[in-house]
Design a binder for these strands. Structure first.
Length: 416
RNA sequence: GUGAGCGUAGUUCAGUUGGUUAGAACAUCAGAUUGUGGCUCUGAGGGUCGGGGGUUCGAAUCCCCUCGCUCACCCCA
């Protein structure tokens, strides 16, 4: 095999494409239902956007980015996540001047240089939503509802919603001190990774999968108990509203998220039908991000959700995707003149939005019939020498085998 | 970056303690009296057994290297 696709990428072949089309259509329909508008940003950005926006201490920026110098010497990075680019576009295009509130969604590829495994690719497709300009608790709630609706429409019902709040930046800072104080006595027992994090990003020790780490952090002070009263009551209001709307969730003190821009509410959608990579979506508030990127202080909240993972869960649940459309009528032409006539008729039918197909391999009558049958065409239109003489072809209905003589320019009238 | 498992036709897989031209099913294509599909029957094409090196009279099978895939760690969607 001479050429192979790069590691962690995939070809989506025709036999699978209808699943993608349906999932994408669902995302767009539900987004419209919630009055979200699509935004498209470039596939690559200047590297600095992610260094500043996502945080240089995060793993995504620290070790997972596709970064390279372009021919002019600028450092370019393939977009590893959706929020920072959208916020950059929001600021750069002065979108706040048009209207105070924006509800945006995207559906596009993300790139991360990681070792592939189940549910993880180097290029993967993500849909996400962002609400910019409001700090209302209803924005948090609405995003969760949006994601949930998309999942539900793809037959995904058995997922958990995990919630937490990591408060404002100063609250988080002081909590981290509290956490460090607590961990200090056990620091030697922590995993190597967590030891490093003790200095750089102690919060992340909470979401370590290492059993020893987890045991130690089980008894750690909870961030929810260390929030200011405003942040705490805001979180309670989000939770109460979700309860009122009948949404099931669980509060998880370990849910701290790996991107630096998050504040207050964080949430994740977890499916038990996946392997180790079990998050089908996640997000949270990022009230400081826009200011960090040079805009006016503006609140925001958003989430991202992996299309491959969504499709995996949908398939595992046996969701029945709609069948791809088949040509309605197959033209069997038995000689050159017949072929010309067939193409005239097909041109007319296609103008009328009727899908049709004919043989392009010069195969026998029988083989063409088989092909029509395999394509599940409802009709076959046969043109041979006799038909050309009569100026009428044979329209065969495949379901019952009946045939009728039909003029070449009147076929559409007979297709019901 | 670390670890484990796995690479045989398009696909799913057989392949006996190393032994002759590497098999099956499905799929593909072509026929089964001349211009008619599904079912059935017959036949055909398709593999440098991931690649390279080694051991051996002889390697798909044993050893080494390499590439790839898969899963897990890490991290995240």
């Amino acid at each position: 095999m001479k050429f192979q696709k790069p590691k962690g990428t995939k070809d989506i072949l025709p036999k699978d494409i209808n699943k993608w089309h349906f999932a994408e259509k669902t995302v767009r329909e539900v987004s419209a239902l919630f009055n979200f508008s699509e935004i498209r940003t470039p596939t690559f950005e200047y590297t600095d956007l992610f260094n500043r926006g996502v945080g240089s201490e995060t793993d995504i920026v620290g070790k997972e980015m596709y970064t390279f110098p372009d021919k002019g010497g600028d450092s370019i990075t393939l977009r590893p996540e959706g929020t920072a680019p959208v916020m950059r576009a929001y600021v750069e295009n002065s979108m706040s001047a048009e209207q105070p509130l924006h509800k945006l969604y995207y559906l596009t590829s993300m790139f991360r240089y990681e070792r592939p495994q189940s549910g993880r690719y180097r290029e993967h497709s993500q849909f996400g939503g962002e609400i910019i300009g409001s700090d209302s608790i209803y924005t948090d709630v609405e995003l969760i509802m949006l994601a949930k609706e998309v999942y539900n429409r793809l037959g995904i019902l058995n997922f958990k919603i995990k919630l937490n709040s990591i408060g404002k930046s100063d609250e988080r800072k002081s909590y981290i001190e509290t956490l460090r104080e607590f961990l200090k006595s056990n620091i030697n027992e922590l995993s190597e990774e967590s030891k490093k994090r003790f200095e750089t990003n102690a919060l992340r020790i909470l979401d370590s999968k290492n059993p020893v780490d987890r045991k130690i952090t089980e008894e750690a002070p909870k961030i929810l108990d260390h929030l200011g009263s405003e942040s705490r009551s805001r979180f309670d209001m989000v939770v109460n509203e979700l309860t009122r709307l009948g949404i099931n969730y669980e509060i998880d003190f370990r849910l701290v998220r790996g991107l630096d821009y998050y504040t207050d509410t964080t949430f994740e959608f977890i499916s038990e039908d996946l392997g180790a990579q079990d998050a089908i979506g996640g997000g949270g508030r990022y009230d400081g991000l826009i200011e960090l990127l040079g805009g006016k202080p503006t609140p925001g909240v958003g989430f991202g959700s992996g299309m491959e993972r969504i499709l995996m869960v949908a398939e595992k649940n046996g969701f029945e995707f709609p069948e791809p459309s088949k040509p309605k009528i197959y033209f069997i032409a038995l000689n050159e003149d017949a072929k010309k006539t067939a193409f005239e008729s097909m041109t007319e039918l296609r103008k009328k939005n009727i899908s049709c197909e004919t043989d392009l391999l010069g195969r026998s009558f029988k083989a063409q019939m088989r092909e029509a049958n395999k394509l599940e065409c409802l009709f076959v239109f046969i043109i041979g020498e006799e038909e050309l003489k009569k100026n009428k072809g044979l329209l065969k209905t495949m379901s019952d085998g009946s045939q009728a003589e039909v003029e070449f320019n009147k076929i559409a009238d007979y297709l019901k």
